Computed example of a mutant assay.
Amino acid sequence: MSRKALPKGGRTKQKRLSPDDRRKEFVAKATEFFSEEGFGGATRDLARRLGVTQPLLYRYFPSKDDLIKEVYRTVYLEPFDTAWDRLLADRSRPLRSRLKEFYSAYTKVIFTRKWLRIYFYSGLKGLDINRWYVGMVGDTILTRIVRECWHEAGRPARGKPTAAELEMAWVFHSGIFYYGVRKYIYESPVLEDKEQMISDAVDAFLAGFQQVFAAAATQRTPEKLPV
């Protein structure tokens, strides 16, 4: 029985990628590369890792900044679920369960070594998109959380959260974020039950918010004069 001759060297020829698939491959490899080497890594080294020439890489991405922006879009923008705000705003459910479900979903996206390393490298480089991401978290996620805390406490809706209220939400959010840093960047021991960690953090935040800002609101209320 005859057999088809194998290509020279015994290897099958790789399937030719479409331009769109080749672009996606470049972005995926660049994400891995920048997460390991930082944004100071040379494109010639990236091209070598890809097994292509530097001019071919520049045919898809005219500059290194263009490539970095595409890495950010795929790492930060694509996974950001617009349904998260609807989840947090669903007042048919207790706020505690909404927060637990949100942070369970959110941490599934950001708790990877690649995501976290890219985040820190971009912060050190001072990229605008990193500042934009921090601003988006504050303006969408944390502002929404503070407003839902007002509603849960029976307080009237008003404009933007105070600086102190927003800072308290950042402390809560950052505590959960740092759990991922400790586990995936520092490889330090952490409570392995992530859901328990989230549940405890949510309980502590809600109790603290209620106590601190309810007391502050009471102190700001002028005393009634006796009739």
Score class of each variant (00 low, 15 high):
V190P: 02
F213E: 09
A169G: 03
P226Y: 14
L206I: 13
V190E: 14
I185L: 15
C149P: 03
A164Y: 10
Q210P: 06
I145E: 05
V227E: 15
Y178Q: 12
T218I: 08
F209E: 08
L225W: 06
Y184S: 06
Q196D: 11
P222G: 13
E152W: 06
A169P: 00
P161Q: 07
A163D: 06
V202H: 04
E195F: 09
L166D: 05
P161S: 10
F172C: 04
Y179I: 13
E165Y: 01
M168E: 02
Y179L: 12
E195T: 11
V146S: 03
A215G: 05
C149Q: 06
K194D: 01
Q219I: 15
A217V: 03
L206E: 07
E165M: 05
F172V: 02
M168W: 08
P222I: 14
V181D: 03
A201V: 13
E187V: 11
P222R: 14
Y178G: 00
A153E: 11
A157R: 04
A163F: 00
Q196T: 12
S174K: 09
G175L: 14
G159E: 12
I185G: 10
A164T: 05
R158P: 03
Y179P: 01
E165F: 04
V171F: 10
Q219W: 05
Q219R: 13
A163M: 12
Y179H: 09
A207F: 13
P226D: 15
H173F: 14
A215M: 05
A207Q: 09
L166G: 03
K183D: 02
T162Y: 00
T218A: 15
K160Q: 11
V146P: 00
L166K: 01
E148H: 00
F177H: 14
G208P: 07
R147D: 04
R158F: 08
P222M: 07
V171T: 15
Q196S: 14
T162W: 01
A169K: 00
R220I: 14
A215F: 07
G159F: 06
A216F: 07
P226R: 15
A214I: 08
G159T: 01
K160V: 14
Y178P: 00
A215D: 08
D203M: 09
I198E: 02
R144K: 00
K194G: 03
F213H: 04
G175Y: 12
A207D: 12
V227C: 09
R158G: 11
V171G: 01
R220L: 15
